[in-house]
Amino acid sequence: MRADLLVATDLDRTMIYSAAALDLPGPDEQAPTLICAEVLDGVPLSFLTMAALDSLRQVDARRALVPITTRTDAQYRRIRFPGVHPGYAVTTNGGSILVDGVRDPQWRAAMDAAVAASAVPLTVVVDHLAEAAVGDWVLKRRLGDELFCYLVVEPAALPAGFVAELDGWCRARGWWVSRQGRKIYAMPLTLTKERALAEVADRTGARGWLAAGDGALDAGFLAAAEQAMRPPHGELAALGWTAPRVSIATATGVLAGEEMAAWFVDRLG
């Protein structure tokens, strides 16, 4: 895989959207044609527009596309973009680099070592959450490939100040917290998407990347991009985050994904 510029895109609420997050404007008969990109337990789960898929195909044809996600390897493998076969993908928030769909064991070992050298063990954070996050507002507790953990919560019942208090506790121990919708992530500070993306760029000889993303976990690789775009929704929008060379899409929901995918094609020329 050789590309002068990589195209690094987050997935959830950037390129793909659940039915609840589509945010389609106008009457139903004017809705765009949607492609199902993910099925879970036999039920369609995530979608993008046909126009967005066409743009991603054009990017992938240039061997430039690098999906980059906090999803684990297994969760990422549920995603299907017909006619798109990226040579590289970054999963587990940078903990894994997939090469033609196969995890690079050397990169994972390096990330395990980096986290162990800079942060308290995952078990310490999990034990703290078992004591600090108690109540009916906690719906699920999950691990991310033995590298990070997260809660699935009921947003309306989330105690005031919980996220800020947890973030303070975590940062003193080499971790930090990001809330994305119903999920509250506890993540090692050294585990970042941009670190893995820089490795992919180095391997491919790319001089940099174009980027799209919507969450705080995306801010690093957006800020480091030659040019980037974020949607007007999501965690970064709620934070009012921006950076030099980062623009904001005009559409929301799945149409923002379509706009950002077309923007990639335009910027690649």
Rank of each mutant, 00 (worst) to 15 (best):
A37R: 01
I35L: 11
S96K: 02
A119F: 05
A113F: 14
Q58I: 10
L40K: 13
F47I: 02
Q106N: 12
Q106K: 13
I97F: 09
L48Y: 04
V39L: 11
S118G: 02
A116D: 14
R63Q: 14
M111F: 10
R108T: 15
F81P: 00
A61H: 11
L122Y: 12
D73V: 15
F47M: 01
R77H: 13
L98W: 09
V120G: 01
G101W: 15
G94S: 01
N93Q: 10
I97C: 04
A52R: 09
A110F: 03
M111S: 09
T70E: 06
Y76H: 11
V66S: 00
D41E: 12
A64M: 06
R63V: 12
M50L: 11
H85D: 07
R63G: 09
R77I: 06
V120A: 03
A113R: 13
D100Q: 11
G87K: 07
L56K: 04
T49V: 13
A116N: 08
F81G: 01
A116L: 07
A74P: 07
D60A: 01
G101M: 12
V84P: 02
S55F: 08
A119W: 04
C36K: 10
N93L: 11
D54W: 10
S96Y: 02
I68P: 03
A119D: 03
N93H: 14
G83D: 12
R71W: 13
D112N: 15
V90E: 07
D112S: 13
R78H: 15
